[in-house]
Amino acid sequence: MQPFSLFSLGGVLLVSVEEDIDDAGIRELLARVSSRVSREAISGVIVDLHHFEVLDSHLARQLQALARVLHLLQARMVVVGLCVPVVMTLLDFGITLPEMEFALDVEQALVRLHESGPQASGPDAGELS
């Protein structure tokens, strides 16, 4: 079984990632998401991480890479579903994921993607930790 699943929500792609995703899985995810974004003219990608109880720095870097790829493809990426322990660990390691956007849940993410318009702003490149 695939360690992630993709749902199309008309212009927005919802990516739900399982916790046991490995390197090969991440590569596969990057390839599939980016090809679908460019083929179907998708303006926003919501990455749902609520299955994760732990998020290591490696995966955080992969997510950053995905965000950059999507930025180059003129799509916005919103991460949802980070739980408290994950957030605390990320901050303890000094990881603030500055190039990404976050939302409380998929619903809020959708609102966010629609409110400022698909092309309005990419990831806030100027943000520092």
């Binding site: 976050f102 409380l104 849940d105």
Partner: peptide, 11 residues
């Protein structure tokens, strides 16, 4: 730091 944490949660 608190703001960064809240941001990661989506607030």
């Amino acid at each position: 730091q608190t703001a960064a944490a809240a941001r990661l949660m989506g607030s």
